[in-house]
Design a protein around this nucleic acid. Sequence first.
DNA 1: CGGGGTTGCTAATTCGTATAACCCAGTCCC
DNA 2: GGGACTGGGTTATACGAATTAGCAACCCCG
Lengths: 350, 350
Amino acid sequence: MTRPGTRSGTTMNDVAAAAGVSQATVSLVLNEAAGTRFSEETRRRVHAAAHELGYRTNAHAKVLRDGVAGMIGFVGDFVATAPFAGKIIEGAQARAWEAGLLLLTVNTGGDKDLEAASLEAMLSYKVAGVVYAAMYHRVLDVPDVLAEVPAVVLNSRDRSGRFPSIAPQEELGGYTATKRLLDAGHRRIAMINIGAADAALPAAVGRHAGYLRALREHGLDADPRLHKIGDGNESGGFDNAVALMTGPQPPTALFCGNDRTAWGAYQALSQLGLSVPNDVSVVGFDNQETLAPHLRPGLTTLELPFLEMGRRAIELLLAGADRDGSTEYFECPLVERHSVAAPPEIAGNK
Amino acid sequence: MTRPGTRSGTTMNDVAAAAGVSQATVSLVLNEAAGTRFSEETRRRVHAAAHELGYRTNAHAKVLRDGVAGMIGFVGDFVATAPFAGKIIEGAQARAWEAGLLLLTVNTGGDKDLEAASLEAMLSYKVAGVVYAAMYHRVLDVPDVLAEVPAVVLNSRDRSGRFPSIAPQEELGGYTATKRLLDAGHRRIAMINIGAADAALPAAVGRHAGYLRALREHGLDADPRLHKIGDGNESGGFDNAVALMTGPQPPTALFCGNDRTAWGAYQALSQLGLSVPNDVSVVGFDNQETLAPHLRPGLTTLELPFLEMGRRAIELLLAGADRDGSTEYFECPLVERHSVAAPPEIAGNK
DNA sequence: CGGGGTTGCTAATTCGTATAACCCAGTCCC
DNA sequence: GGGACTGGGTTATACGAATTAGCAACCCCG
């Protein structure tokens, strides 16, 4: 029900006419411009007319004149299954809003044509900057066109080193996870990774490197047979957990490259009649909200600080200017639940 | 590296100067305006100059002149944990893009002030319409300001009946799920709901109504003790499944109000030493991508057609005009996996 | 009573694009 | 040889808001 007087086409000229003043007066009064004096009576009339007519400023006219828009572009290659996509966007949007900016989001799904076209559109809209976000941590090539505007790479690293990047501290995360298990007394700790650690997958490489460093610091030699390559999914966790636990010298603890993998491991252990954490301890990675707290027992895992990363991306954009192409790393804090205990030989004290 | 000649400030006037023609000529040539004739030579020079200077149209100037922007507002109350939020947005964005429109998204998290403010901002940007999306299916109050622009309510229904709404066909979904179990031979079928069926929660009410109708059509009386109220989460599924299976006359099949609930039920059945589907059949609801296919065995469930719903919302907006406030319901197709079998007394054939 | 200061407001211009209106030089036709 | 086309452009204006420069009217003061 569009009430009369609430028509979206009301302009400053309409308000001016209604208030019996000039358009300039309306602009100056409504924007409370500094250094101008208007009588109380005039101000009142302007505000009354504006309210009466349902005046709303035309953002495009404003942008056209002032040069820069109150929008930030957010381009992601997310697929909908990425459970944390929302977190990143939520963080980014919240921070943008604090600065009075809206987010123009596009989900490219990896389609390069769509990506190019939407970047063009965003630049046409004179966005104040662009966040180029990746679904999973990797090294990627950023479209050249982004050089025309402040840009930040989120959850990945820019190969060319032209843009500031934001990424999680994978190595420290892997170290923390493994150390947690070592501190609980475990010595045979397997890792089920989310991909080959020699591929260009910083999450797999880094988490594994941290795993190795923790073992080394405890004077342990890493047994290569305890490093399994999964697929980052439930089935990779399941299959590798079965292989590990039914093989010779099974581990007493599993460090899983992500929570989905850990879930698969849980299901495998359950089928093998092994209990978490009494028989086998498990640590995950990601702290996936829909998964980690609901596993039985609750999964001890590392949190990917996506909310903060999203916020920080906008922050960098706003700070703007002379940022170099360096990468800012975010720490992944340990989230303690109930999937880690002492290994059986210690707990059982036989 | 902003190359010279790629400055974002290039306007049509710059192109015109470079090509030695008027600004009007540039506009007419670049837009391939109908009914105008220019020599091949002129066209060539204009295109060359535009390319050389890296000209990009200023969308704001265009909108200012043409009146309507190539953007659609998308306001959601999602929390990041909503696993399907991405699906809805993906569908909406894809359809919008096909029409050459970008999505201006805001995640309000239920904050009414933020909601009001961002709607104001969107209207300032002269969006072609607004999709007002809800995280879960309910009846809600739409902000009055949306009356000023084409608007569609997504995954909920507008209480006032002013806006067209799009929602899933909950009742039919509940019917289909239950019928699947009846057809497999089950007669004692429990439902673990995702909330009280008398609350203003169409998902709970509708799915339960469908459950009752299916039973009735098969000439069965619904046993009220087999209808449990969960919390829509894993724990609700777990607790109620334990209660049902350890009580008198346990059911042979569980219809769970959503997949998370079904997951809880799986965990409970596993702990009770009961096998899915040999001892107990399970049907879920939502077809949550991160869950249903990865459960063991894969969960038979109903798909919430969020992608299509998102697409349809944009479609309605574009069709625009004289839509009334009626609700369009989307069918939830059955996704067959491996959690349904004949009940033991039949399968065992004793 | 004339000059300077203050109060309260307006006229005019700018941003970049689209388009309606018009203009000029040739050509054709009768 | 004059009117009617036609091809190939240009000029001028509008869109809506912000802002600079300036203009009347009044007051005060010497």
